[in-house]
Amino acid sequence: MKLKDGIKETNVVVKSGADMILPFALVFGLYVILFGTVSPGGGFQGGVMVASACLLLYLGYGYKATANMINREVLEVNEALGAIIYVLLAACGLFMGARFCQNVFTDIGKVGDLISAGTVTFMSFAVGYKVLTGVGFLLLLMLYLLGDDDEEEEVEEE
């Protein structure tokens, strides 16, 4: 499982391919997250598409450049923030006197608008944010683990 050193300097074709596709991936993924309640898609699907930006950067520029651009610690904290926002939105039902996860924002917007489905819209945003940071963190972690397998692991015996 040793990576050759040559993979860090990719050729022009791969680099420019990644450059061109990256904005489309980001924008289209964001569109799928935001319009999740009106058209097919939603939190998870859009989140994975946006997180594929990490992979595109790695393919085009190598691991060192990707690690400089995206900080793993920030991604980890933001993933938990997305989860906390989801739980707090679900608990909005409790604060307003109804059941947990109940749809309490029912009179915002008309059918077909961006923000129209009540609590579910905001929950979908929170899920999308969590998935994009979470999957991105996962991809970066695996690339980091594969990157330095020059060091050996020492295991304590009993």
């Binding site: 683990l145 594969l146 692991e153």
Partner: peptide, 8 residues
């Protein structure tokens, strides 16, 4: 991830 750790 576990397989990577086991291999090391």
């Amino acid at each position: 991830s576990l397989v990577i750790k086991l291999y090391k």
